[in-house]
Write a protein that binds this DNA or RNA. Structure first.
Ligand SMILES: [Mn+2]
Ligand SMILES: [Mn+2]
Ligand SMILES: [Zn+2]
Ligand SMILES: [Zn+2]
Lengths: 140, 140
DNA sequence: ACTTAATATGCAACTATGTTGCGTTTGCAA
DNA sequence: TTGCAAACGCAACATAGTTGCATATTAAGT
């Protein structure tokens, strides 16, 4: 059903259709979460010139509109992935091949954990970040 | 029972008792997880001169010996906390006051989530990183 | 089509965290 | 006390990310 093109997604978000946002989204849609340096070299391969400053700025507006989400796996740099509005999920990073897998987990259990924390402390939890590390099937 | 002094902990780990390791551990023991820049200014306040390179190197050896653990809350820099050998726990970051709280959560539930993931995929999970964000009691 | 305002872009300079090489100093054990 | 490994300071470097400012592009409105 909801198969929007990149151009349509950008329009639907009320954003200007710039070369930057278009190319970046295109790259993000066919990759695992990637970093800005990786986006930069991917652009270079496609013979597209786009400044790193422009990339950071385009990503920033795309994130605000939830077309992109930012991931931090503790590598000292952020990663970005294309995101549709309702796809909250988590990641598994293979310590051997470094591949990043998207995983959807039982959010009921997560919610149970959060309730647990909230009852013991006086926190109100708005958000969580959960990642797993280990060995993937290819590397097992 | 196991109340070792900083000097004793360093000795027990088979490490040389250097000014750096001693002062750093002292600071870490009386603080929430802090970053290297913060350690640096904390040292300056105490009128102790220690180079940032030395701090990074001291932290690195302390981490290897599990006297310190490294935390990444996605702020673009690492944080460090004093750790005893068996205190695996997680953190809650208040989005308002930025305080970091240590939280111990029901690892049985976490384990259940992990089993779940492992059964659906062919991963073997070795490690996880779980953090919560929201509003703390003081800021509620 | 022509104008205009908002947004996007390039570039250079800058900030920040973290690392490396190397020469010197210090802790500690023989 | 002497010798070696570990620790240290310093400068230079690496990399991720930001800012200011001038110019270019986009999307409307005329
Ligand atoms: Mn993902
Ligand atoms: Mn902690
Ligand atoms: Zn793998
Ligand atoms: Zn708070």
């Amino acid at each position: 059903m909801n198969k929007l093109s990149i151009e349509e997604k950008i329009a639907a978000a009320g954003l200007k259709l710039s070369q930057g946002k278009k190319e970046i989204l295109e790259i993000l849609e066919k990759n695992a979460p990637i970093s800005v340096p990786e986006i930069l070299s991917s652009l270079k391969t496609k013979k597209i010139s786009l400044n790193k400053t422009s990339i950071y700025r385009a990503l920033s507006t795309l994130i605000k509109k939830k077309l992109v989400s930012e991931i931090d796996l503790g590598e000292g740099k952020k990663r970005y992935e294309a995101s549709s509005k309702e796809d909250h999920h988590h990641h598994f990073l293979c310590n051997t091949c470094q591949h990043i897998y998207h995983i959807r987990l039982d959010e009921m259990l997560v919610s149970k954990i959060e309730k647990n924390i909230e009852s013991k402390n006086k926190f109100s939890i708005e958000n969580h970040k959960i990642e797993f590390y280990g060995k993937c099937g290819d590397c097992g």
